[in-house]
Amino acid sequence: MTQPVAPTTPLDLLTPELIRAEVARFLSRYVDDPHTLESERLLTGGLLDSLAAVELIGHLERRFGVSVLDDDLEIENFDSLAAVTAFVVRKRQT
């Protein structure tokens, strides 16, 4: 796994790999084994409850400067580490 990105890393230097590492670092507080983040479903698999999902969204908005709109609140955007990473990458490109 890639090393976690420092909170001071400028937003324009964040690659998809660094975004993924930062999301994984944030989510690791919610699981006993961080390796489960690579293979398990976050929401539908029960790794995150609704409060953790809200905290994740707040973290994405603060850390990556993205706005999560009502239309973005689809399970598909937040149900895996890969999906969250892809979501942030997409939002940063718009």
Rank of each mutant, 00 (worst) to 15 (best):
T44M: 13
A52G: 13
V68G: 02
K91Y: 05
L18V: 02
L14A: 05
E74P: 00
A6V: 03
F26I: 05
E17F: 09
L73G: 03
A21I: 09
R41Y: 08
D72G: 04
D72L: 02
R62L: 09
L13N: 11
L51W: 11
K91W: 04
E22M: 08
T9S: 07
L47G: 10
T2P: 11
G46I: 12
E40W: 05
R62W: 02
L37Q: 07
L56A: 02
P7D: 13
D72M: 07
L14P: 01
D72Q: 08
L11V: 15
D33E: 14
E74Q: 14
T15A: 09
R90N: 08
L37N: 06
V66Y: 04
L56I: 04
T15K: 06
E40M: 04
L11I: 15
V89I: 13
K91S: 09
E40Y: 11
A21V: 07
L14F: 08
D32P: 00
M1G: 15
R92H: 13
G46K: 13
L14R: 14
G65L: 05
L48I: 05
G45F: 06
A52Q: 04
G46S: 11
T44F: 02
H59V: 05
D71T: 13
E76H: 02
R90Y: 08
E40F: 11
E74V: 14
R29G: 14
D79Q: 08
V89G: 08
T44A: 11
D49N: 15
D12F: 14
I19T: 10
V88K: 00
L69E: 14
V84Q: 01
H59M: 12
P16M: 10
A52V: 01
Y30S: 11
R20E: 12
G58C: 06
F87I: 01
E76G: 03
V89Y: 07
L42Y: 01
P16K: 13
T94R: 12
I75G: 03
T15E: 13
E55C: 01
E76Q: 08
N77I: 03
H59A: 03
R25A: 14
F64T: 06
S28N: 11
